[in-house]
Design a protein around this nucleic acid. Structure first.
Lengths: 192, 192, 192, 192
DNA sequence: GAGTAATCGAGACGGTACGTCTAGTCTTTTG
DNA sequence: CAAAAGACTAGACGTACCGTCTCGATTACTC
């Protein structure tokens, strides 16, 4: 019945150490200059221990993202204020975060990693709040009578997410009023 | 005598040869697995001849883009039909192109290259039609009375461009009606 | 009274299996490419079971030699014929064995192992008949009046052994009459 | 007619540096613990520069031997005294050199290398004076009337060389009178 | 029996070195 | 005299083994 495993068991210490080293080096040097040898050295781990569990550096990065070691923030849309203000707040925060001095390079590296590996892309979208989260917030607004019930929530969400994507891609500087203009232009017509 | 002229001619041949080799190898292996050595070998050129003219492989790729060797298409929005239909056509075409079997991997590589090098990003945006081109088309629609004069053209354009960006990033499959839904949702409210 | 040990006892099956796997792999790949991991895998044995009982692969090889798993032959000088003919026979046989197609590579590996580990060297010499065995045969010839009693038996033996050693070391091909020439040159002057 | 090569030419500095580093490390750690990486590091040379010119570390060692970087001594038999004394001197010197504290380990490593690679074996024999050198010295003795003209010079030489080989192989300590006993036993009967 | 050691196969661990590949620079020869 | 050919130092790649260290199971002696 129970397939007994034999031999020593995976070392959780090594596992953690690898993820932490990866996160640190990713932040320091970016995805391109991240190396398996560097991770192994920083984590005080044999290279084989990395290759035993992950097929490529992209997968290690994906797991870092999943575990929140790389990007500990989880962006959920706020819900207290009227939907228009909540969306502006949220988009403004994300936009500032994603394009700000601190993190712009990190995100460019993450996008490069995502282009290399679909898992990284998936994790990254989940972290940044995919459209389903946005749609839920908008649906709540519909239920509260703040948004017309015939509003195309899916498309509105996609427009907002796309705006963020575009700004990462095009190295656009963070403009404080971009979020406001975007929300008014796209969501505005559907507010009651 | 004219021996010297021939030397200059040969140099231009090398230049072209490098761009063509780069384009061919880019298409074959993608940006990550593109190497200077590979380009030099394929172009029958010394590595130094590449390093003499470009500081990095990203710059070679950028010039390929500029010269149209990599991406010979130039996407301009059509102008014949009502603006709503023109935009749908245009977005649909671009979306299919960018996410289709043939080119999806190429675009992912281009995005990776753009993350590595701002020039590549600039070229890529220019090739795919940046917002200013879209804004011009929309302005024409305003002038023609098809779109309300208070419509936020900049933001509408950004929403459309963002949608495309998002689809490249997230490896979304090409949905034929996505363009239509997007145009109706974002531009719809501003049509007269 | 007797301090008996507790717990399981050394597995004879594992022991044998290791020696056999070692012999097989030694013959297949030679000493240099023999690995502890390879032996363990071939013997269906944990690596630790090898390290528990032997300090190095050289010691395992030495025991293989001792147990006759590696080299099942035991060369003793014949005694029937006149000493000159017996020595020729014996040297010829050994020389052919040691330098022949079949075994030359094996012996080179054994020499390499002997350079690595003195025990292997000891075993190897014992197997191939060290000088004391030769001296005994020659002493019998002295007693039988076939060899002068003032003959330097030790040095004559050493000369014969040295000839064999030299031929292994220098990859000399097996010459059928080498043994005869050697015996006549070195032992000849002392025959009665 | 002459196929001339293009491009840069082999760096003599790197070549020398590699041979010297190899000799130093060989002496320090022996053949087994000699590594290509170690040589490259010590010689301030890329590993590829070693692999470009030699297929294995054994070949590098062989060239070290050939170039006299590893073993700068060249043993030629002396010729001044009567042949018996010259041979004793020569054998004693070689035996002491080969089995002495200083060099025994080096020679064991060299033998191991020779078992690995035929070139090393050839070089080693040439360095230590192969039998042809000995035969020449003995022939001179024959011409001078010190040795009988029917003496089997080839076999006598082989006996002496074999004695040395055996002593390297068997880790025999250097006995000062071994050379004398050997010469008297093997060459003695042929002296006039 | 229950307890206690030592053994077993299996295999993960931190490491070292392998032999290959590419980067970016420097050098020689040739058209 | 520009540029092809290619050697140079440097360093990461992914693999193979090293010798050590768990694991859980098994075996054999002691109490």
């Amino acid at each position: 019945m129970n397939e007994r495993r034999r031999g020593a068991v995976r070392s959780e210490a090594a596992h953690r150490s690898i993820l932490e080293a990866t996160a640190a080096l990713f932040a320091e040097k970016g995805y391109d200059h991240l190396t398996i040898e560097g991770i192994a050295a920083r984590a005080h781990v044999g290279k084989q221990t990395i290759y035993r569990w992950w097929p490529s550096k992209a997968e290690v990065v994906a797991e870092c993202l999943l575990e929140g070691v790389l990007l500990p923030y989880q962006f959920m849309p706020p819900t207290g204020a009227p939907v228009r203000d909540d969306m502006v707040d949220w988009l403004r925060g994300l936009n500032a975060f994603v394009t700000g001095e601190q993190h712009a390079e990190l995100f460019r590296s993450l996008v490069a990693a995502a282009m290399d590996n679909a898992d990284v892309g998936r994790m990254l979208r989940a972290k940044l709040g995919d459209e389903s989260v946005m749609v839920q917030r908008l649906q709540a607004a519909v239920d509260a009578g703040q948004v017309r019930s015939d509003a195309p929530l899916q498309e509105v969400s996609e427009a907002f997410a796309g705006m963020l994507a575009l700004r990462v891609l095009s190295r656009a500087p963070a403009e404080p009023d971009a979020a406001e203009r975007m929300v008014d232009a796209v969501l505005g017509p559907y507010l009651t």
